[in-house]
């Protein structure tokens, strides 16, 4: 088992996590992340009884909420906490490509 991740592997997870790294940090994480990942490899030595998975303990079924409107925030409160805004909008530097999601 190799004892560190490649630089590319570290940069890949940093990209997934949206965290910029200095060269120094990359080197450090090549070793540290590998150590943790070696640790979790141990899961492969464990056998499970069945495919049941545990999502939330002790909740038989989610209790559904009635479709009734509750209190909402004033737009001023919404934008008040944001670092950048204009008018009633929260602002970010322009995003060119379309949304990835829905």
């Amino acid at each position: 088992m190799k004892d560190k991740l490649t630089k590319e592997e570290v940069l890949h997870v940093a990209e997934l996590a949206r965290i910029s790294l200095t060269e120094e940090e990359i080197e450090k994480y090549q070793v540290e992340l590998k150590e943790l990942l070696n640790d979790v490899e141990k899961i492969n030595d464990v056998e499970s009884y069945d495919d049941d998975i545990l999502i939330a303990c002790f909740s038989e079924s989610a209790k559904l909420r009635k479709d009734e409107v509750g209190e909402m925030l004033d737009p001023k409160e919404v934008i008040g906490a944001s670092p950048r805004h204009s008018g009633n909008y929260i602002e970010v530097p322009v995003v060119i490509s379309g949304g990835e999601g829905a």
Binding site: E91, P93, V94, V95
Partner: peptide, 9 residues
């Protein structure tokens, strides 16, 4: 999208 900014609602 407004010029160099994107506004979120």
């Amino acid at each position: 999208h407004r010029g160099s900014k994107t506004l979120l609602d």
